[in-house]
Write a protein that binds this DNA or RNA. Structure first.
Length: 250
DNA sequence: ACCTCCCTGGCC
DNA sequence: GGCCAGGGAGGT
């Protein structure tokens, strides 16, 4: 059941969503960057992107659904999958195999955790790029899975200033950055993600993610840097808040 | 390659 | 009453 058509905005024919899911068996699940992939038999992939405030839960169909539940998929055992998303930046779509190979999905870069590029490949991709590395990290075509908070944290861990032009980073810096991305995402996942004060992001069971307490740059404007004691500053890069340390990120 | 817009709850 | 946060599609 779909009570918010906007959540299906990537489905070319909105009626395709229910039609493509109905009667199919879930064969497996996977993740690519920020996309959750539910493989169904018959060559259909059910894609879910949680945006920033999305939540997926599975519950007995008789139990009341949380507020802002916009899409509900009934399973044959009487339970249902619920997609809850107050801000509706998330979306879901059911695609056929050939549609997966088309834009915009085909443009997605390798998963930042499962298949990160080598330093050599990254060097090549960043060659002559003049955009700030912060903006490039958010470009899912280069690397899929790094969002605003984790980009700032990874750049902090690597000691690289967010304004640096992508093409200016040397091999040593890119090696540090790749290691920092891996460490940051791994730690973030282990902690259950980052729940900010607005409580927009919550785990499926409603608990808050605990990476918030591990943040060293994001959201700490004016606070002392835990590494060098300098002051964390906030800049806006490509209309995104960017927190970094002037003292130890170069 | 860049900016704008979408959306909502919470806070100033 | 207005602003802000987030990801990404689409337009210039």
């Amino acid at each position: 059941m779909v009570t918010r058509p906007r959540m299906l905005r990537l489905q070319e024919q909105p009626t395709d969503f229910a039609r493509r899911l109905e009667g199919r068996r879930i064969a497996g699940t996977a993740r690519h960057g920020k996309h959750l992939l539910v493989g169904l038999d018959g060559g259909v992939t059910w894609i879910i992107h949680l945006g920033m405030s999305g939540r997926i839960s599975v519950a007995d169909g008789a139990a009341p659904a949380p507020a802002h539940t916009h899409v509900t998929v009934e399973l044959d055992d009487g339970s249902e999958v619920r997609f809850t998303d107050p801000r509706t930046f998330g979306y879901t779509v059911a695609l056929l195999d050939d549609e997966l190979d088309a834009a915009p999905y085909a443009r997605y870069g390798p998963d930042a955790l499962a298949a990160p590029p080598s330093v050599a490949v990254l060097t090549d991709r960043l060659d002559r790029r003049t955009a700030p590395i912060k903006a490039l990290l958010l470009d899912q075509r280069l690397l899929a899975g790094v969002g605003n908070i984790y980009a700032d944290e990874a750049l902090f861990a690597a000691g690289i200033a967010p304004h640096r032009k992508g093409g200016d980073l040397d091999a040593g810096e890119l090696e540090r950055l790749l290691a920092a991305i891996d460490e940051t995402l791994t730690a973030g996942i282990a902690a259950g993600g980052t729940t900010l004060e607005d409580l927009a992001y919550l785990l499926p069971d409603g608990r808050a993610g605990e990476f918030t307490t591990a943040l060293r740059a994001y959201g700490r404007e004016g606070e002392p840097c835990v590494r060098c004691g300098g002051s964390i500053r906030r800049d806006v890069i490509r209309n995104r808040s960017t927190f970094w340390c002037l003292g130890c990120q170069r």
